[in-house]
Computed example of a mutant assay.
Amino acid sequence: MTRCDGWSGGWRPAAVVFDCDGLLMDTEPCWTVAEREVFARRGLPFGVEQKELVIGRSIEQVGVAIAGHLGEPAAARSLSAELLGLVTEVVTRQAQAMAGAHALVELVRNAVPVAVASNSPRALLDAALARGGFAGTFGVSVAADEVAEPKPAPDMYLTACRRLGVDPAHTLAFEDSATGTRSARAAGVRVVGVPSLPDRPLDADLVVGSLLDPELTAWIGTWTGSWTGSWTGSWTGSRP
């Protein structure tokens, strides 16, 4: 990580909103299993190009994307339903919490209110949180089927901030995908990016390799005390 002064002067969030899939929960392999099966049923390969097509999107958006890729736009709804059934089964059976997720969430919860905002529908979000041991952790949670437009629209973050009672400008998001990062930025929320595809950079304010990043946890540890130093990290934004 390179030194920067992007958040020097004492900025810290009044609340934090976490993404779920690929950020708190290692569900991307589960999604990949389900997505690969959808393609395999049609005799088609599934690789990096196809994964980039769907990562971070809501189940409806994924259905539209796959249908377009297959040249079958009318099949979007049925593809979404097929994929949702497959991924729910896999998540419920084998999804695990990301390394460092529980410790980081607890560290943040000790300092500021927290929420989770996921592009998964409510049933799948609850299944993932329960499987990972996060049930009851978040007083505020927002699912894709509870807003007018899912990520990358700002609705999910604006809804989470409203329910938390905080200004988006005073809120920090944790995201792993470009879709989620765009959503947070559109809502005026600062973003820590933890890329689930390491070779695909995120347009986040701060980018770290994992939730275990020691400088990240050290910075969060200052939120409950007086802050006199400067953050050192990979600053990519221009906000003060």
Rank of each mutant, 00 (worst) to 15 (best):
A127Q: 03
L86Q: 13
T181D: 05
E35Q: 11
G47I: 01
I220Q: 04
S238C: 07
S78D: 14
D199S: 14
D145T: 05
T27K: 10
T179F: 11
T32C: 01
G100H: 08
P198Q: 00
D205L: 05
E149H: 11
F39V: 03
S177I: 02
A128D: 04
R190K: 13
P152F: 00
V64M: 04
A65Y: 06
P201T: 00
V17G: 01
L44K: 14
T179P: 12
R77K: 12
W7V: 00
D19H: 12
D19V: 07
S8T: 12
P13T: 00
K51L: 13
L197S: 05
D199G: 11
G56V: 01
T32Y: 07
D176L: 02
L172G: 02
P240Y: 01
D205Y: 10
L202G: 03
R77L: 09
A101G: 11
W231S: 01
E52F: 05
A186H: 05
A14S: 13
W31T: 00
P154G: 06
F18R: 03
A204E: 07
G85N: 06
E149L: 09
D5K: 12
A40N: 14
G188M: 05
R41Q: 15
S8K: 07
S234P: 15
G180I: 01
V207E: 06
G229C: 03
W11M: 03
P121A: 05
P152G: 06
H102M: 11
G133A: 02
T228Q: 08
D167H: 14
C20T: 09
E89S: 12
V207H: 07
M98N: 15
A103C: 07
T179S: 13
V147A: 14
G209H: 11
A117H: 07
C4A: 10
G165K: 08
P45T: 02
R93T: 11
D176W: 09
E52N: 15
F174R: 08
L129E: 04
D213S: 10
H170Y: 06
P168R: 02
A187T: 11
V142Q: 03
R182E: 10
W31N: 02
S80W: 04
R182D: 08
A40K: 12
T224S: 14
D26S: 09
R182S: 10
A111G: 11
G43S: 15
Q50G: 04
L164S: 10
S234N: 13
E149K: 06
T159R: 14
A218R: 13
D126F: 04
S141W: 03
R190G: 05
M1Y: 08
L158M: 11
T92G: 12
L79C: 11
S238Y: 08
P29Q: 08
G225L: 04
A178G: 15
V64F: 06
V208C: 10
A65F: 09
M1I: 04
Y157K: 09
L70W: 07
L24C: 13
D199C: 07
